[in-house]
Design a protein around this nucleic acid. Structure first.
Length: 110
DNA sequence: CTCGTGACTTTGT
DNA sequence: TACAAAGCCACGA
């Protein structure tokens, strides 16, 4: 069994998911922050890719990751609406323009 | 090796 | 506050 289950790219993805998993309920983080915490420097886009490729059934709080503007990043499908629903269910508040006040909800705190 | 791509970020209007 | 442009980084054609 020498399948590339432990390729560098794969391990990097696992570390990203581990960091995302550390975001407490009722809080959010950003792609850039997750990248930094995971030790990827300016690898925010890689964080987005990891969540995009998240296999169904994987238990990770992917919905707690938003962009630096405090908004749910655009994408295809209804995933955006589902993300907002999940966040609101945890007490996250959205402004009239659909923005989250990071000063209040970002993790770790500013 | 060069190019295009993207759940991103920062900077300049 | 909103939008455009440029910067950034890993991947795959």
């Amino acid at each position: 069994m020498s399948a590339p289950f432990d390729s560098a790219a794969n391990m990097r993805r696992e570390r990203i998911l581990a960091t995302v998993d550390s975001i407490p309920k009722g809080r959010v983080s950003t792609y850039g922050r997750i990248a930094e915490e995971t030790g990827l420097g300016r690898g925010a886009r890689q964080v987005g890719a990891a969540l995009r490729d998240l296999p169904r059934g994987r238990n990770v709080p992917w919905h707690r990751v938003v962009n630096a503007a405090g908004q749910i990043s655009p994408r295809d499908g209804d995933s955006q609406a589902r993300q907002r629903k999940l966040l609101e269910a945890e007490g996250i508040e959205f402004s009239a323009t659909g923005r989250i006040d990071l000063a209040r909800f970002v993790w770790p705190a500013l």
